[in-house]
Design a binder for these strands. Structure first.
Lengths: 355, 355
DNA sequence: TTGTAAGCGTTATCAA
DNA sequence: TTGATAACGCTTACAA
């Protein structure tokens, strides 16, 4: 901080004394179901039913109960409820990375769907490490969630079994696996690679290279990319795979590695949103003309990055649709309706200025 | 999707059959404390103590119990625990916006601190709407969280009181308020404005303008900005304030509005991360030279945006430090240690290429 | 359609 | 240092 600044100036945050609209009176002790029951002159179990299975309660009684609930601001204790029923109203969402807007966008979209139905979303982060995954799943199990939404798939069979044993709706996503634990909302990563190859070929690039993660989805994208290139009689000019992507900087590094390898490439498919931006920044800052000297194609949903010139061309999928879809599938399952088990989302090519 | 792609290709996701390292055997029925107690030949309460207050249990007994816990894979039921004790091990984190990396970075930093201590993080999103805030707080109260971390401050007195009544550690952050509910990790938004003004003056700009949000933090930043300009005998060339910022596009619009107003300005302080990038993009795409014709100074933590050329100069604060600090304060409070109540973080000026 | 009784798994309280 | 007992607030199972 510059020296001439008052070190600890106090900001005047606006205080507001009145809420708009009717609200329950503030109380320090939460109201219990027993009190609601007393005031409505029914038994506690009837209050419970009025809130949970309104159909089982006569309309008159239900109306009276709901009025008292309004007045008292009653909110059921989720722990007591979960303890007794063995099921909470928490939907656990695991994102692979809280920093990645792809995943938070999906999580948020899922939240907006389920929260409208009285469920709570709990966000956790799975590293890609199996041991941390196990810990996360153990505490998950203890929470007795109503459902689970994973922005990814679980690969370790033991952990898959643990999730299966929870016997609740589970939505995996992102990767298009043959054998999901339960439900799946996905797009094909292999197709993403194919689409990338087709696009680069169409644009007249003859020596495409690849940058991506070594495992999981990255591998699948490379597979599709290589396969389609072969069909088109184009060589894969070269590739750099890395184990873990943390930031845009990793993309810059990967791009330089590719160059240092001495391969000649006229374009590169970066199979990850951060890698794409990094490669682009590195190429531009080296003074290369994009797409004149090198074409760059990224992967990701349309993100803030994409509004910056030069806009990165990307293979994209609508990630908030993934979340919405997952939320909808969870709701219909919990509602006892027959739900679609597999949904395959379309990929598209967002044409920017870099190919 | 391109027509020539197989519409629903199946990716081959790798399955892994063996976990690395020792793990508890998979079971479908969770182990209860009673079973651990039986196997360790003690009473349930002693098991509880061994896990929660190890000091109260003799070393021999404790060791025996912990072994059984290991073997059985016992994990306590958090709902039963919360119900009986009136307190869960959930730390509730409210971010103003899940999409904003500033906030998720703080949330994640907080999570890494508290999760290392056996607490769970639950992320929620507060819109800026007071009515939704109330609903969020009601379900929050029902959860009996161990502590609350807010990336922001609560302004509505009624809601502040509700939080105070929870009688748990509460950390507000971001705005530097005079009167926090409980604890505070903040920087001064007024100082941010002052720092911006000082920086622009130092760089020789004589007609600085302002773009920012109309309320809350934006207002405070404008206040500090204007105040410091006055001290420096510089005029505020003009300003555009907007009610709500959603995207970079809003920054472009705000910049054009400022121009349309007909004021002459040689620089602009954009008091929000998205606004700064938007203004920069708009200026560049109009063919203005930056900082030759116009200097642009943004606000935000160092973010991905900042690695793009031309790098935006920004008034910054380390948002992951906000989260870590909040986590640490929560932990010491929960541990019964005397914790620091107010922490003021320093602002700094990240010099980019736009001033 | 409503109510009674019991119990979910843990921990507070008090006693030994 | 350890244990017996009861209770947290709700919902299942069964009865009326």
């Amino acid at each position: 901080m510059a020296d001439d600044l008052t070190a600890h100036s106090i900001d005047d945050v606006v205080r507001i004394d009145q809420a708009s609209g009717p609200t329950a009176p503030a109380r320090s002790k939460p109201v219990r179901i027993e009190e609601v029951a007393r005031l409505a002159a029914v038994s506690p179990i009837t209050v419970s039913r009025a809130l949970r299975n309104p159909d089982l309660v006569s309309e008159v009684t239900r109306k009276r109960i709901l009025e008292v609930v309004q007045e008292t601001g009653y909110w059921s204790n989720p722990h007591a409820s979960a303890l007794r029923s063995g099921r909470s109203s928490i939907v656990a969402v695991f994102v692979s990375n809280l920093q990645s807007q792809q995943y938070t966008r999906a999580a948020q979209a899922c939240a907006s769907v389920i929260e409208a139905n009285g469920l709570q979303m709990m966000v956790g982060q799975t590293s890609y490490s199996y041991s941390r995954e196990l810990t996360a799943l153990q505490s998950l199990r203890a929470l007795r969630p109503a459902a689970v939404f994973l922005t990814g798939v679980i690969e370790l069979e033991e952990n898959r079994q643990m999730l299966r044993d929870l016997n609740i709706p589970i939505v995996e996503s992102w990767a298009h696996t043959r054998d999901p634990i339960d439900m799946l909302v996905a797009f094909s990563n292999v197709d993403a690679g194919r689409l990338a190859a087709s696009h680069l070929a169409e644009r007249g690039f003859r020596r495409p290279a690849f940058i991506g993660r070594s495992g999981g989805r990255g591998k699948l994208r490379l597979q599709g990319f290589t396969e389609r290139l072969a069909q088109l009689d184009l060589p894969l000019a070269g590739s750099t795979v890395i184990d873990w992507v943390d930031s845009i900087e990793d993309g810059r590094i990967a791009y330089r590695k590719l160059q240092e390898r001495g391969v000649t490439f006229d374009s590169v498919f970066c199979a990850n949103d951060l890698l794409g931006m990094g490669a682009l920044i590195e190429a531009v800052s080296q003074g290369q003309s994009v797409p004149g000297e090198v074409g760059i194609l990224g992967f990701g949903d349309r993100s803030e990055f994409n509004s910056l010139p030069p806009r990165l061309s990307q293979v994209t999928v609508d990630t908030s649709q993934i979340g919405r879809q997952a939320g909808a599938m969870i709701l219909s399952r919990l509602g006892g309706e027959p739900a679609q088990d597999r949904v395959c989302l379309d990929l598209s090519l967002l044409e920017g200025a870099t190919t």
